[in-house]
């Protein structure tokens, strides 16, 4: 739970917001679930558009397994999800584009990347390009929305933030920097509706020729020593790994201890 950070949205109007959601996959067990980033995107959507102004769409198959995962989004307090039925191996972008054109939202929220399939994170970019809308990545929070622009906070590394003014309509992607998604409740998940929509299917030709395999472990990069003499190479290989007990200052004055700490803080560059 993050209680700090200013995440209060001020000066909001009732804007039409869409969120694109996918079926995720648990990293440990591989079970279907709501995708982590998509759920965070929905969370931002809920903070912007309470009630019926948040529209969710999922493009893909609607098997019983994926239905349970989609219902987890409903459990966040969403009335319904439009399921654009697309078989496996279809290019979902045209279907989503058509859905968005029809809906005409001011803001489209997407998770930065899916958790199944190619998970290339391209969909928001393709949609923004084809629709000609603005695109912002790594959204941390939406501060305010008015008629044709919004002020958002973009997440930079290490908790830093950057304020952007973005012209609407816009597509934004959400990743780990945004607030975690709220709990999914059983009752709303059961009551909510999955509207299955038949949409034209565009096969994804490129992907036909790919081979997909379970991820192989990547080899750890070895520290390669460029040395011409065998002795140097041996010395480098046999050198004791660094570390193995740090420096312990016993019986020093508080002043001396503080100086040693300050020196390390400076070396690491964390002192501003």
């Amino acid at each position: 739970m993050q209680r700090d950070g200013n995440r209060n949205v001020t000066g909001q109007e009732r804007v039409k917001v869409a969120a694109l959601v996918s079926v995720g996959r648990h990293p440990v067990t591989g079970r279907p679930r709501r995708a982590e980033y998509d759920a965070r995107a929905v969370e931002i959507g809920l903070s912007l558009a309470t009630g019926g102004n948040l529209h969710l769409a999922h493009a893909g198959e609607c098997s019983p397994e994926s239905e349970a995962a989609l219902r987890a989004y409903l459990g966040m307090g969403i009335a319904g999800v439009d399921v654009l039925q697309q078989p496996a191996g279809a290019d979902i972008v045209p279907a989503l584009e058509a859905w968005l054109r029809e809906l005409g939202p001011r803001l489209v929220l997407c998770g930065a990347r899916g958790e199944t399939g190619e998970a290339s994170g391209l969909v928001p970019f393709l949609l923004a390009e084809r629709l000609g809308w603005s695109l912002v990545c790594g959204l941390a929070a939406v501060e305010s929305v008015d008629g044709d622009s919004m002020i958002v906070l973009q997440a930079l590394p290490r908790g830093q933030r950057r304020r952007l003014k973005v012209r609407l309509p816009a597509v934004v992607t959400v990743d780990a920097a945004a607030q975690p998604a709220r709990q999914s409740a059983f009752g709303p998940a059961r009551r909510g509706g999955l509207q299955r929509l038949d949409t034209p299917v565009t096969p994804d030709g490129d992907a036909q020729s790919w081979t997909t395999a379970p991820a192989r472990k990547r080899p750890k990069r070895l520290k390669i020593v460029k040395a011409t003499s065998a002795r140097d190479r041996f010395k480098a290989a046999a050198a004791k790994a660094e570390g193995g007990g740090g420096q312990v200052l016993t019986g020093v004055s508080a002043q001396a201890g503080a100086e040693a700490i300050l020196k390390l803080l400076r070396e690491e560059g964390v002192l501003r």
Binding site: G75, M76, G77, R182, Q183, S184, A185, F186, G187, P188
Partner: peptide, 13 residues
């Protein structure tokens, strides 16, 4: 609270 509100405090979620 848990099944309708989806609001189990702290680490509950």
């Amino acid at each position: 609270l848990t099944m309708e509100h989806g609001n189990t405090p702290n680490k509950g979620r």
